[in-house]
């Protein structure tokens, strides 16, 4: 398959002379930079979501090109790659957050529980209740901590009685590891918390709906190292109940929290594999270039 240089995406590789004709296999045994077929095993033994032939366009811009990937149950899968590589675009497809962007088109199969999530019959509200999302910047609502967490269960009608709501809020905050810090301030505004606490509040808000999958779009990029470490611990704990897809800029973070890693490059899924293997012995030249810091 040939690589189409897309004028809309900036091409760090091009500037470095990386995009040039080279043999299919380089002398160190890696797959050449020119070859954009996905390397590694894209499948999972027990998949929660199955994606095949996924393409995404923003207007004329081809943002994601033919991505095949399984996301397994109770695994943490990390998406890494340089800016503009399509990793955020990919996870935003998984709960159709791209719907609200003007001129965005998605094609291909994204199957969850045997149903295509882009199918006409699929209900976005239902999908998003099953696939929660945590965003780059902590975005608590300008409401109390309690109301922030109770928001999801309330709109979805998950709890009939007041005590049920309270129970959900408490367990969610406990799962998010925030309970001990905020249990006396539940009526204080969520926006008054520190950045790391806000992000954990957003995680609590997402899991209060009891989703099957939690998508995290660079959840630690706005946080300091200590808060980041706290979130990473939390992700590891959450793996027990949820499937987590995390986009991250930090390779160390991917190595620390994930079991599988997918490397994206300029809209292509380059390599998928066990996290250990990706970071110790990447099979693709581009993956190696990225993780060894040649660009990115």
């Amino acid at each position: 398959m040939t690589f189409q240089i897309d004028s809309g995406i900036d091409l760090p590789g091009q500037e470095l002379g990386l995009v040039s004709k080279m043999p299919a296999v380089e002398n160190n045994g890696k797959v050449s930079r020119d070859d954009r077929k996905t390397v590694g095993d894209i499948t999972h033994a027990d998949p929660r979501m199955t994606c095949r032939d996924v393409h995404v366009w923003y207007g004329d811009k081809h943002a994601l090109n033919d991505v095949d990937l399984d996301i397994g149950k109770n695994e943490v899968i990390a998406m890494i790659g340089p800016s503009g590589c399509g990793k955020s675009t990919f996870i935003r497809c998984l709960n159709r957050m791209n719907d609200s962007i003007d001129g965005c088109r998605v094609s291909g199969d994204l199957i969850m529980d045997g149903q295509d999530i882009y199918d006409r019959k699929m209900d976005v509200v239902l999908l998003r209740a099953m696939v929660g999302m945590v965003f780059q910047k902590p975005n608590p609502f300008p409401k109390s901590i309690f109301e922030n967490v109770a928001y999801g269960p309330r709109i979805h009608g998950l709890a009939a009685a007041k005590t049920d709501i309270e129970e959900i809020v408490v367990t969610s905050l406990q799962k998010a590891g925030l309970w001990d810090e905020v249990k006396d301030y539940l009526d204080q505004p969520g926006t008054g918390l520190s950045g790391g606490q806000q992000q954990r509040l957003c995680i609590a808000r997402a899991i209060a709906v009891n989703p099957e999958v939690v998508l995290m779009d660079e959840p630690c990029s706005a946080l300091d190292p200590i808060a980041t470490a706290r979130i990473e611990e939390l992700i590891d704990e959450l793996r027990e109940h949820y499937t987590i897809a995390i986009v991250t800029h930090s390779m160390q973070q991917a190595a620390r929290v994930s079991q599988r890693t997918a490397y994206f490059h300029l809209g292509d899924l380059i390599e998928v594999g066990e996290t250990d293997q990706i970071f110790t012995n990447p099979k693709h030249q581009l993956t190696e270039d990225y993780i060894t810091g040649r660009f990115g």
């Binding site: 209900d123 239902l126 979805h156 009608g157 099957e212």
Partner: peptide, 13 residues
């Protein structure tokens, strides 16, 4: 359980 959750959500849709 997630199954229960989806059922509840579906009811209210």
């Amino acid at each position: 359980s997630p199954k229960h959750t989806t059922d509840l959500v579906r009811q209210g849709l």
